[in-house]
Amino acid sequence: MTQALSDTVVETIIEVGDRPIRDVHADIQQAARAGGHVVLRNTLSRHNLGVGLPPGCTLHAEGSVGYYCGGLNTGARITIQRNAGWGCGEAMSAGHITIGGYAGMSVGAAMLGGLIHVRGDCGPRAGVAMKGGTIVVEGRLGYQSGFMAHGGKIIALGGAGPSCADALWQGEVWVCGDVDDLGVDAVITEPTAEQVAEVEAILDPLGLADRSREWRRIVAGQRLWYFQSRDAKAWLMI
């Protein structure tokens, strides 16, 4: 672990490599609690990097990370240069994560708040069971994204794969581009001008605003809400 001082910020460079993740995690937490900027080098797609970071710190991963990076984030700013494995940002409640490449399965699973920005595509079930916050995907959403999302927004600029927004609850999936097909109980609605403005306001700070986009706003048809097992038509829908 090496540290460099600038005028205002302490930057800590942490080598990941083949070190025990417990040791790496301790180094990250020590630097993060001091409120500085943490740089991870030679990440080798290792799991559980940058979990449980506090507000006020920033972390940059040079390269790709494995599973659960940025999980339980409570306000840190995290940037990942390349790809992230499964469950990036899982259960985060605040903060901002940028993934420079591909986001693996279940990015933002069960997240409560904050923003995850994926510059590439997403794997299956992005935002599964999310309760709040926003996931912005510049590429394409994977299979069954938005599955059982209870809240929050997923915004995809490059289309969506099969079974989009399957069994959605109160979340919203916004898609620009083609959608392979919708999941059960998902319906496309015409967004209001106010709703579009709200989405564009999210995209603006990311440099992604484009008022000419045609949006599909996908929400729950509510036929699976309080599902009645004696309802034969509901079973057929599944």
């Binding site: 591909y102 399965m105 794997g123």
Partner: peptide
């Protein structure tokens, strides 16, 4: 890490 990984996630 510059070597690209393909994710067969679908």
């Amino acid at each position: 890490d510059a070597v690209d990984v393909i994710n067969h996630d679908g």
